[in-house]
Structures are given as C-alpha cells and as structure tokens.
Amino acid sequence: MNAQNLKRQSINPPPTQVFYDNFHFSQATRVGDMIWVSGQVGIDATMTPGKDVEEQAHLAFQGLRNVLEAAGATLADVVELMTFHTELQGDMQAFAQVKDQYFPDRYPSWTAVGISQLALPGLRLEIRAVAVAGCGNA
C-alpha cells in the first residue's frame, strides 16, 4: 500500500458535524480500507434517548450504518464490535436480539462491557466498531 492510500480521513456525515465542532472528535476515521467508528448511541434527531434498550439499540445501529455508509462501507464490512452497557446483565438478551437483525450472519467479533454511565442521561448503551471497507463482499 502506498502512502497516498494511507491518507487519514475524518468522517462526519450530516448532522454529526456538531460533535466534531463542539467535542472535537470524528464519527469515524478512515485510513486505507480500515475504518474506526466512534461510539454510536441510542438517540434520535432531537438528541432524546430511546425509551428502552431495544429502541436505543436500533437507533445506535442505524447511526453506525449511516457513518459506515459515509465512509464507503456497510455493516457487512464490520469486523469488530465493542458495546458498552449500563445495565449489562438485564439488557444483554434484548440487545443481542436487535444486534442479530443487523448482523444476521458472518458475525463480527464482539466485546460487551458493563459500565456505570454514559455521556448523556438516560443512555443505556454505546456501540463502537472497526470495519474493513469491501471485505463484506467477499
């Protein structure tokens, strides 16, 4: 791979530029075919958390999908998931069922971590991912 292919790109699809501007981080960073996606949370367009773990998981996975698409990838290209849960034991089964809707086969590696709180009140989970653009097509 030549140096031009290793150019670092910040990925901030609309309307996520506000996070870059206010909190100084990108929704994703792409170098070559590798994409590192920042934690996606279960909030809607008004920054309101979903009412339960299922709704928050759907919102977070939709955010993950949108960021990956802006980076030139898809959910099929995800090779690693790391999820953070404020209610790990109680939410794990429901979260896993939602996750399986977005990853019905060719499962990525996955680490789930229990934590005490997330950045916004009411959030129960956060999803970060690593993808390799184009690998899901193989």
Results as ranks from 00 to 15, higher is better:
A138V: 13
T111L: 15
E126F: 11
P108I: 12
E55I: 03
A131G: 00
Q17V: 11
V41K: 02
L88M: 15
W110L: 12
E55A: 07
H24R: 07
Y102V: 01
A73F: 07
G42A: 02
L118C: 01
N137I: 07
K51I: 09
N5I: 14
S10V: 13
M34S: 15
M34W: 12
D52R: 00
D105P: 04
T16F: 15
D21H: 11
Q97R: 15
R8S: 09
A112E: 13
P49H: 00
T86R: 02
A138R: 14
N2C: 02
G63A: 11
D91S: 13
H24A: 05
I127K: 03
Y102S: 00
A119F: 15
S38D: 00
E80L: 10
L88V: 05
I115D: 08
N12T: 05
F61H: 02
T29L: 12
R30K: 15
L6K: 10
G72V: 04
D100G: 07
T111A: 03
A57W: 04
G63P: 11
E126M: 09
A57F: 03
L125W: 00
A3K: 06
H24I: 07
V18D: 09
W36I: 15
I35V: 10
K51V: 05
L68Q: 05
K7V: 07
A70G: 13
